Simulated scan of single mutants.
Amino acid sequence: MTNLERLLSQYAAYHLDRNNIVTHFVGIPLIVFSILCLSARAAVDISGFSVTLAIILIVLSSVYYLSLDKLFGILMLILFVLVYPLAIKIAALSMWSWLGASIGIFLVGWVFQFIGHYFEKKKPAFVDDLIGLAIGPLFVLAEFVFLLGFRKSLHQRILKEAQMKRAEMDMKPQIVS
């Protein structure tokens, strides 16, 4: 099993309900976009080029995603490049407009996430493993690729492993306070 398969199947074990996955198609992109908006305002000029914290986050996350899977990494980088100009426009707003828009988008994204987990009847993956915060965007991209009918064998391996992990999770006694 590749590292990609291990990480996606671990994340998928918390996301087997179709309604939950659909809410994540909205929630996760909103959260990621809001983080780009928030971080696009922090910048330093280097030789006349503005290097924002958002660019640094894009580069670091793209390198990480590329290390897991070349196709998914390239697709994620393309998506980041497409939304970055809008994040810059939001970051250029007045202080309160920028903060209001960015935090508002962030909160709406999380509302979608928690609605999805209501359907799933499981806590979000990041509660047990913080790497879930980085894998969530990749999971949504992968699910979209799978929905289009591509990489079926990868999808099947991830789904099979996720179902086994979920069965193990369901067998563990729940601690009720």
Score class of each variant (00 low, 15 high):
Met1Asp: 12
Leu4Gly: 03
Leu4Gln: 09
Leu7Arg: 02
Tyr14Phe: 07
Asp17Glu: 12
Asn19Glu: 15
Thr23Glu: 10
Leu30Ser: 04
Val32Leu: 09
Ser34Cys: 10
Leu36Asp: 02
Leu38Trp: 03
Ser39Ile: 13
Ala40Lys: 00
Ala40Tyr: 00
Ala42Val: 15
Val44Asn: 11
Asp45Arg: 14
Asp45Met: 15
Asp45Ser: 12
Ile46Arg: 07
Phe49Leu: 13
Ala54Ile: 01
Ile56Pro: 14
Leu57Val: 14
Val59Pro: 11
Leu60Cys: 13
Leu60Gly: 13
Ser67Arg: 15
Leu68Gly: 00
Leu68Ala: 06
Leu71Ile: 15
Ile74Trp: 14
Met76Trp: 06
Leu79Asn: 06
Val81Trp: 07
Val81Arg: 12
Leu82Ser: 09
Val83Thr: 13
Tyr84Gln: 07
Leu86Ile: 07
Ile88Pro: 04
Ala91Lys: 04
Ser97Pro: 07
Ala101Gly: 09
Ile103Gly: 04
Phe106Asn: 02
Leu107Asp: 15
Val108Leu: 10
Val108Ile: 11
Gln113Arg: 02
Gly116Ala: 06
His117Asp: 01
Phe119Pro: 02
Glu120Tyr: 07
Pro124Arg: 04
Ala125Ser: 06
Phe126Glu: 05
Val127Glu: 06
Gly132Asn: 04
Gly132Pro: 00
Ala134Val: 07
Gly136Arg: 00
Phe139Cys: 03
Leu141Ile: 04
Ala142Pro: 01
Glu143Pro: 06
Phe146Trp: 08
Leu147Asp: 04
Leu147Met: 07
Gly149Trp: 08
Lys152Phe: 11
Ser153Glu: 11
Arg157Glu: 04
Arg157Tyr: 10
Met164Ile: 13
Lys165Ser: 05
Arg166Asp: 12
Lys172Ser: 13
Ser177Ala: 14
